[in-house]
């Protein structure tokens, strides 16, 4: 599964291709730092089993983001324009 790399976002006249591929390395580094800290915190709290729930939530969130590829929302109402497209 590959996460979406770009996203088209438009509100009224302002439209932009959001470079999501720049976001993923930052999130990866954030997770690499936070997950060991969460694990240590849970060991101290004596709730190590809950750590696997955290891992499952992270993986489920990742698969949800990957599944969002192909999503398209176009709404044009009089002067209002709202568009999201994830190729």
């Amino acid at each position: 599964m590959i996460p979406p790399m770009v996203m088209w976002f438009k509100v009224q006249w302002f439209g932009i291709w959001v470079p999501l591929f720049l976001l993923w390395p930052i999130i990866l580094v954030f997770l690499a730092i936070m997950l060991p800290l969460i694990f240590i915190g849970m060991v101290i709290a004596g709730r190590v089993s809950r750590f696997w729930v955290v891992i499952r939530i992270v993986l489920a969130a990742y698969s949800t983001i990957c599944a969002a590829r192909g999503l398209r929302i176009d709404i044009h109402k009089e002067q209002t324009v709202f568009e999201i497209y994830i190729p």
């Binding site: 729930v53 499952r56 939530i57 489920a60 969130a61 698969s63 949800t64 990957c66 599944a67 969002a68 590829r69 192909g70 999503l71 398209r72 929302i73 176009d74 709404i75 044009h76 109402k77 009089e78």
Partner: peptide, 24 residues
């Protein structure tokens, strides 16, 4: 009258993934 244009395409995969996420 006001004319609306709506075009929404939702991948079915996101429904499955959303249910998996919600189960947690």
């Amino acid at each position: 009258q006001a004319q609306h244009h709506v075009n929404i395409r939702v991948p079915l995969k996101i429904v499955r993934a959303g249910v998996n996420l919600a189960s947690l």
